[in-house]
Amino acid sequence: MITPGEYLSLLDARLPGLVVGAHVYGSRVLDDVVADSDLDVVIELSSPAELPAVDGADVAVVLAGALEKPVSEVTPLAGAVTPVLWQQLRTVGQTVRGARPSCPGTAAEVEAYCRDNLVSYWKPDFDQAREALPSRPADKPVARDVLLWVGLGPARLWHTIRTGEIVSKSRAGELAAARWPDLPISDLVAARRGEDVTLTNDHIALAIELFDRILADVAIP
Rank of each mutant, 00 (worst) to 15 (best):
residue 99 A to V: 13
residue 115 R to P: 09
residue 105 G to C: 06
residue 209 E to M: 02
residue 173 G to S: 06
residue 103 C to H: 01
residue 143 A to I: 05
residue 71 V to E: 13
residue 114 C to M: 09
residue 123 K to F: 07
residue 84 V to A: 14
residue 169 K to I: 08
residue 202 D to S: 15
residue 6 E to N: 01
residue 146 V to K: 14
residue 7 Y to V: 01
residue 138 A to N: 05
residue 92 V to C: 09
residue 163 T to N: 04
residue 62 V to D: 02
residue 131 E to G: 04
residue 36 D to N: 14
residue 185 I to D: 06
residue 189 V to L: 09
residue 179 R to A: 13
residue 157 L to I: 07
residue 33 V to E: 12
residue 190 A to V: 04
residue 109 E to V: 09
residue 79 G to A: 05
residue 177 A to S: 15
residue 29 V to Q: 00
residue 175 L to I: 14
residue 173 G to P: 03
residue 158 W to K: 07
residue 100 R to W: 00
residue 106 T to H: 06
residue 75 T to E: 14
residue 200 T to S: 13
residue 3 T to D: 11
residue 44 E to W: 01
residue 15 L to S: 03
residue 197 V to I: 15
residue 25 Y to L: 11
residue 126 F to M: 14
residue 162 R to G: 10
residue 136 R to Y: 07
residue 146 V to A: 15
residue 141 P to A: 08
residue 178 A to P: 07
residue 171 R to H: 06
residue 107 A to W: 01
residue 202 D to G: 12
residue 16 P to N: 11
residue 199 L to D: 07
residue 9 S to I: 00
residue 44 E to K: 03
residue 17 G to T: 03
residue 180 W to H: 09
residue 165 E to G: 02
residue 184 P to R: 11
residue 125 D to A: 05
residue 115 R to T: 05
residue 31 D to Q: 07
residue 85 L to K: 03
residue 56 G to H: 10
residue 115 R to Y: 04
residue 120 S to N: 14
residue 14 R to I: 00
residue 127 D to G: 04
residue 132 A to W: 07
residue 110 V to N: 00
residue 22 A to L: 04
residue 184 P to Q: 13
residue 68 E to C: 01
residue 164 G to M: 06
residue 117 N to W: 07
residue 148 L to P: 11
residue 93 G to Q: 08
residue 88 Q to C: 12
residue 25 Y to S: 00
residue 191 A to T: 13
residue 34 V to W: 02
residue 70 P to M: 04
residue 23 H to Y: 08
residue 27 S to I: 10
residue 97 R to H: 06
residue 16 P to V: 12
residue 119 V to N: 01
residue 64 A to H: 10
residue 139 D to F: 02
residue 137 P to K: 04
residue 109 E to H: 06
residue 187 D to N: 13
residue 138 A to D: 14
residue 200 T to W: 01
residue 216 A to L: 10
residue 214 I to L: 13
residue 107 A to I: 13
residue 125 D to Q: 12
residue 80 A to W: 00
residue 114 C to V: 09
residue 190 A to I: 04
residue 128 Q to T: 12
residue 128 Q to H: 09
residue 94 Q to F: 00
residue 34 V to F: 08
residue 20 V to N: 01
residue 83 P to F: 04
residue 79 G to P: 05
residue 68 E to F: 01
residue 108 A to K: 12
residue 125 D to E: 02
residue 111 E to T: 14
residue 29 V to S: 00
residue 51 L to E: 01
residue 11 L to Y: 04
residue 214 I to M: 12
residue 81 V to C: 03
residue 167 V to E: 08
residue 121 Y to I: 08
residue 2 I to F: 00
residue 117 N to A: 14
residue 212 D to T: 11
residue 145 D to N: 13
residue 54 V to L: 00
residue 60 A to L: 01
residue 176 A to M: 13
residue 5 G to C: 02
residue 121 Y to Q: 08
residue 220 I to Q: 13
residue 178 A to I: 05
residue 8 L to A: 05
residue 180 W to C: 12
residue 12 D to V: 10
residue 27 S to D: 09
residue 13 A to H: 05
residue 85 L to F: 05
residue 147 L to D: 03
residue 219 A to H: 12
residue 137 P to G: 06
residue 73 E to R: 05
residue 172 A to P: 08
residue 214 I to Q: 04
residue 220 I to N: 08
residue 167 V to M: 10
residue 84 V to P: 02
